[in-house]
Design a protein around this nucleic acid. Sequence first.
DNA 1: GAACTCTATCAACACTGTGTCGAGAAGTTC
DNA 2: GAACTTCTCGACACAGTGTTGATAGAGTTC
Lengths: 223, 223
Amino acid sequence: MAVTPEAKSPAPAAPKARGRRGTRASGDDRERAILETAERLLEERPLAEISVDDLAKGAGISRPTFYFYFPSKDAVVLTIIDRLVADAAEGREEILTALAEQGPRAGLRASLENLYAAFRSRPGVVRAGSDLRPTNEEARGLWSAVMEGWVADVTAVIEFERSRGAAPPGPPAREMAIALVQMNERAQYATLLGEEPSIDRDRVLDLLIEIWLRAIYGEAEPG
Amino acid sequence: MAVTPEAKSPAPAAPKARGRRGTRASGDDRERAILETAERLLEERPLAEISVDDLAKGAGISRPTFYFYFPSKDAVVLTIIDRLVADAAEGREEILTALAEQGPRAGLRASLENLYAAFRSRPGVVRAGSDLRPTNEEARGLWSAVMEGWVADVTAVIEFERSRGAAPPGPPAREMAIALVQMNERAQYATLLGEEPSIDRDRVLDLLIEIWLRAIYGEAEPG
DNA sequence: GAACTCTATCAACACTGTGTCGAGAAGTTC
DNA sequence: GAACTTCTCGACACAGTGTTGATAGAGTTC
């Protein structure tokens, strides 16, 4: 399999016109007001405790009018998440490049630090996305695509490091990548939302990186 | 810190009388019928698509009568999950003992295999528990307690292996334990429910164990 | 400037689901 | 057979979602 530093996640979200049907109009203000209200409320309380009426009121319109702009509450949240994911993808450093320039530990750190910065600033939105998955197929698909992108990147890293002899052989690279990415997802989420148990906020990244390094570059014959 | 092979998770769930108020009566049948209906339906479709009426109908009673036996749909699911968790805890082998008797790889494998067997047989219930967490405080607390138990066990293992010189020093044992347990939770869940991406069903355990071993027993100085 | 069109708005409605109340049936105890 | 407890459900009140249809205004078009 070809391993090139150009390997990159696909853009995670198709611009699927989740918002208003028509196009330009001063009602753009309303649409923005709804999105802003949702973002604000999500940092205050969980999605399940926010009604369409809350969003409408917050945007200064009636409930039926809300449905002129968005087909459902879920659609609003999905729009917000699309943007968050796009932000995260944009600010992101190419992981293979970072590794080559800064070495494994520093490269990984820079790459992941960058990636999680976007999420860290909007925990309410992250939680909403997570809450949405059980009931919303589109939310599952979106997250699935995001994960596939990261997994592809990490798979490429592992294969590259093995091919140049820096990492020893081991389980299939893609499997390892999946497990490591899933670990990060879960641990970062728990930390971000202050679950119990969770890892300390300013320790979590170093800890995860240490495990990644041991998993990728280490060989363990325990006794 | 004392590290003894006796270290064990606390019993995860207090018997909090989640079901009927009173006690013995032939209405025990009804209660059982409700629980069985719920278990059956949960293997068919997600929790969000099951109504109180579905449970009542399935148990041959009216909706108001359902409320004589359980205060809510959530209470039914929590009862089922309590039992599942208890099953998992019961069939479980003491991890430190298994390690001492079978060595790290085989001991870990036996221990985890045993633990996940209970979950693997009822994926619908596992999903329901996961779906419940966003909206139900008690579900969060229950899972939190379960995780703490596992984390305590794994922390003890790591500290023991380090103290006897089998594992090298590294990040705080508890932090490592949290990350590893969270990785297992996430990866096993994804595999069990066939998420995309996820690790192959009959590969997941070996893969996770390999990462655990590398994380616990390995040292990585990558270059 | 009258007719026409497109955006935007909302009161009123229909529907689904939750949880409660109060009246009573059915069984048990003395 | 009276009193008590267990169990049952029709009818209600409520909260939330999404739809319909009527209408107001802004912007062409001729």
